[in-house]
Every structure is written in C-alpha cells, then in structure tokens.
Design a protein around this nucleic acid. Structure first.
Lengths: 242, 242
DNA sequence: ACCTGAACACCGTTCAAGT
DNA sequence: ACCTGAACACCGTTCAAGT
C-alpha cells in the first residue's frame, strides 16, 4: 500500500516530499492527471501553491516524482525460478500496479529521466536476464525490444474500436444509435480491413491501461511472443559460444 | 513533400484547413511542439488567434490534424513482394517520416482517435497481412503486438544513457566533467546491472525518433524479432487448418 | 531568515461589441 | 452576418513586501 518501498534508493529529502508526492498520486487517481496542477494540489494539502516549491523544484519534477512513486509500488522480483517465468511474473506485477493508476502509463511514456525507483526496477529486471545466462549485449537488445512492456503496458497504434459514446443516455437515444451505426457503416466501406480486424475481437473493457491501450489478453500474447523470441536468441548465443 | 496525399480520405473542408495544419507542422518542426500554441501559430500565419477556430474546432483537433498530416506523408505500400518484406519496408518508410518530424511520435502516442490518413495507413498494413494469408483474428493479434512499431517508433523504457550534458561549453569545463564522471560512478555502484547494459552499447545519436526513444539498429532488431514470430504463427495456423 | 500573497507572462476559449 | 479584440478563467513561476 505504501507508495515508497522496495526499489527506492536512499532519499535525501524524506518526509515532506513523499507526502506531497503521495497526495499528488492520490489526487490523480481521484480526478485524473489533467486536473493535477500546482494550485489544485496545494488546495488539497491546505497550503498555498508556493509552499510546494519547497519540496519540489517545479511541476516537471513533481510529475517525475509521481511516476517514480507509482513504480516503487511494484513488488520485488521472485528469486526461486528461471528467468522466463520470473520476468513474465514481474512484468505482470508491474502491469497490475499501472492498472491501479491509469494515468501513470501515459505520463511514464513522456518522461526521459528515470527516478531511483525506476532505476532499481530496471536493474532487477536486467539482473534476472544476466543471471539467467544472457550475455550483456543480448540483454541490452532484449531490454530495448521489450520497450514500454517492461512497465506492463503496450503503446497501441490507436484504440481498436473508436469508443462509441460511453454516455448511456445518449446510447439509449435511437437517433444517436442510428447515427452511430451509419458512422460504422461508412467506416467499414472506407477502411474494410480495419473493420474486419475490429470485428475479429470484442475487447474486455476492464484491464485496460490508460487511454488507447491494450487489454490483458493482447498484452500477454505480445509478451509471450517476445519472451519466446528471447529464449531462442539465448539458445543461439549458447550454441555459438559453447 | 506535400503534407497531404496517398492515405487521405475525402476531406470536407479542404483548402484553408490543410494550410493551417501545414503551417502548424512546419512551426513544430522549426521550434518544437511545446512552442506551438493557438497564439503563436496565429502569429506565424499573420492572423488573429480566433481566426484559427474557423478551420479547427479547438487545440485538440489541431494536434490531431497535425499527426494525421504527418502520417499522410508515408509513401504507399509496395505491392510486388510477400507480406514479410513488404511490411518491413513499409514500417521503415513510416519511421523515416517520423524521423523527419521528431515531435510526432510523442504526440501520436497521446492520441486516441485516428484520423483518416492514419486509418488509411492501418488499413493498408492490415491488408498486407490478410492477403499474405493471415486469418483475421491472427492479424488482429499481430497488429496489437506490433503496437506503436507500425508507426516506426518503439516506446523505450527510458533513454539508455541519461543524456550527459549536450552543452559543449559545459562539457569542456573540467569541473563539470569530473562531476559527471562522479555521478556515473555513483550510478554504477547503486545500479550495477543498468550500468553494465548501458556500457554494452554506444548509441547512434542520429536516427532517434523523439526523446527517450530507440535508435535505428535497436528498432530493426525488435522489428525483425516480431516479424519472425509472426511468420512462425502463420506457419502454425496453416498446419492446423490444412 | 522565512513565508506568502500579489503579480507576471503566458495559456485556450468565450463573448459581446463593432463593422 | 461576420470578424475581432477585449475579457475570462485558468496556468506555472517570480518576486518583493510583510513578518
């Protein structure tokens, strides 16, 4: 439950800063990231906006601290299995954490500097590969290939069906329904292959990380395809050196 | 060169809207996306900010139009080869376009609704798979697994080496250099596996799409791993049905 | 020395006044 | 009817005045 644990490196400014970040994470969970401003955050903490600048250099650092606080929630790695099952389990753990903070994946995607918790997590994922027998350069390639999937989310091309009016009142309106059907018909004639693919799967609305992202089954499909590929590469590397 | 071609669906508001989007793309190319506001864009066009709202509903629609204008630059698909080489070539074409507009990948990543050019491009990529023999549901899975890679970029975990001071004046300063070396030493002791992996590869600074993203070699490595996986899945699907 | 509230320089967007 | 400039409701952040 606590936002800061396992992977966190020794922090210099302890008590107040984490309280600010904690409050920011909870605020984003409650009202969405777009509603998190220095001013609204200060309001929820009952302080004047400028007070935040004592614990956080600026808004960018606040956002960085928020993603790192979320990453710190990822449980530690299992140690009693092979690299394959350990990595799979770890990444699905990360996914569970990201699902709990739907704004986090999109924010993480925009960050360029990892925080201490992020570095700790990456370090342990890398360790699982190298102790599993992956040579350094192959581990490097494999981490790049994983990309955002290490964090338990996959950046999709676009959300598969363009979300058809989530407002139930509007959905009940027969005129709106007809307009929607007509829209889909037009889309299907203009982009027949997209329509066929869209029809090929009903998406599970729970288990989606962030807007425009993957559902659980798709994520595991892609993850397993990658891990299988990694296994083959490892086998190749071994036959070449042995 | 023209921003709108191949994949664009019949547009309703033609001349003025594309001129606005064109100007916005060029402005972003020149000064970065962060500097593109309704006000700065209006200034470069020599009009009052409110004039833009005639051609674009709001800023969100402007941004959507900008990514779609970039996507429209992707050349049409080659038709005289198998799905594998065609898809590979097409995606590397997309990558070349994204490289020309470094802000586009990050913006695309935040979008949830594809524009007409995006739908046209996706439709043609999907068509290549299905005419190549992929059943609809497998094509669907494969498209999801590709994720953002259809657009020629891979969302990385974080930029591999935290960029060490790009300012040449600062880099020449021996004190700054020493501080940087000390920082790396600290990082290496706190996160030894990350340090080892970072040392395992020097990154090519050209050919990088957006901040915190992949270089060309890494991208092709991951792409080929996926395409190889897809080939195997296709072979499996065929032996199961034949 | 420290905190804080006003102020600055921006946003995107509304809206009414002027033509 | 149409355009436009002022204005509104926000930002993040600076800075000086008050304690």
């Amino acid at each position: 439950m606590s936002a800061v644990n396992s992977h966190t490196a020794p922090e210099r400014t302890p008590l107040r800063r984490t309280a600010v970040l904690q409050a920011a994470v909870e605020l984003a969970d409650r009202v969405g990231l777009a509603e998190v401003s220095m001013r609204t955050l200060a309001r929820t903490l009952g302080v004047v906006p400028m007070a935040l600048y004592k614990h956080v250099a600026n808004k960018d650092e606040l956002l960085g601290g928020m993603v790192d606080a979320v990453i710190a929630e990822i449980p530690p790695a299992p140690t009693d299995t092979d690299w394959h099952t350990a990595t799979r389990a770890r990444i699905l753990d990360a996914r569970r954490v990201m699902l709990a903070h739907p704004w986090a994946s999109a924010l993480l995607a925009t960050r360029s500097q990892p925080g201490p918790a992020a570095l700790g997590y990456l370090d342990s994922v890398i360790a699982t590969f190298t102790t599993g027998g992956f040579p350094p350069t192959l581990t490097h390639q494999v981490m790049h290939t994983l990309g955002s999937r290490v964090w338990g989310f996959n950046l999709e091309a676009f959300p598969s069906p363009p979300p058809p009016s989530l407002d139930p009142a509007e959905a009940a309106d027969p005129a709106a329904l007809a307009a929607q059907a007509e829209m889909f018909r037009q889309l299907a004639t203009a982009y027949p292959h997209v329509a066929q693919i869209a029809a090929a799967a009903r998406h599970d609305p729970t288990g989606i990380v962030g807007p425009g992202c993957d559902d659980q089954a798709e994520f595991e499909f892609g993850l397993d395809l990658l891990l299988d590929g990694f296994r083959r590469l490892l086998a190749d590397a071994r036959t070449h050196t042995d």
